[in-house]
Amino acid sequence: MNTAASACPCQSGRYYAQCCAPLHQGAAAPDAEALMRSRYAAYVRGDADYLLATWHASTRPERLDFGDAAATRWLGLDVKRHVRQDAEHAVVEFVARYRIGGAPAVRLHEISRFVREEGRWFYVDGEFPAR
């Protein structure tokens, strides 16, 4: 678990306290990339409440199952691009890597869609591009 004086798990190069912590505590993300990074950090921290709160109501699952969260090790995040399509829509492409137990690392490459409603960004859904 990261403390305020540790590096943010989203790999922004900033401390958690100045990066994702304010968003995890209820501040609005300034853009879709910041929201996406904070969601990655929430996965690292096992914060299902934050993930559900930032998931758009039209696609949000009832609950999240992290499986064996203790066995999951998040290895890194690489934001490929952030495109603001208009004032209310954006796309973020990223690659997240993780490992469960002793299994080989998994590379999750997603192009995510975000929408802004009433001044807050929400994750809508994503697609996995062909390799």
Rank of each mutant, 00 (worst) to 15 (best):
A5D: 15
S6G: 15
A7F: 14
C10K: 10
C10P: 10
C10G: 11
S12Q: 11
Y15F: 15
A17S: 15
Q18W: 12
C20L: 13
P22W: 09
Q25P: 00
Q25A: 13
G26E: 09
A29S: 12
P30H: 05
D31Q: 01
E33F: 07
A34L: 03
R37H: 01
R37W: 01
A41Y: 03
A41I: 06
A42Q: 03
A42H: 04
Y43Q: 00
R45M: 11
D47E: 09
A48D: 11
A48K: 11
D49W: 01
Y50V: 11
L51C: 08
T54E: 02
A57M: 11
S58Y: 00
R60M: 09
P61G: 11
E62L: 14
E62M: 13
L64R: 10
D65W: 03
D65T: 09
D65Y: 02
F66H: 13
G67C: 09
G67E: 09
D68G: 11
D68C: 11
D68T: 08
A71H: 13
T72F: 03
L75Y: 07
G76I: 01
G76W: 02
L77N: 02
L77K: 02
L77W: 01
D78M: 10
V83D: 13
Q85M: 14
Q85E: 15
H89Q: 11
V91E: 12
V91M: 06
V91F: 07
V92F: 10
E93P: 00
A96Y: 06
R97H: 03
R99S: 06
R99T: 06
R99M: 02
I100W: 05
A103F: 00
A103E: 11
P104H: 03
P104Y: 04
A105N: 02
V106W: 06
R107W: 02
R107Y: 05
R107M: 01
E110I: 06
I111D: 05
I111T: 11
I111F: 07
S112T: 08
F114I: 00
F114N: 00
F114H: 05
V115W: 03
R116V: 04
R116D: 07
R116T: 04
R116N: 09
E117D: 10
E117R: 12
E118Y: 04
E118P: 02
G119I: 09
G119K: 10
G119T: 08
G119N: 09
R120I: 08
W121Q: 06
F122P: 00
F122K: 00
V124P: 02
V124Y: 08
G126H: 00
G126K: 03
G126Q: 09
E127M: 10
E127G: 04
F128E: 03
R131F: 02
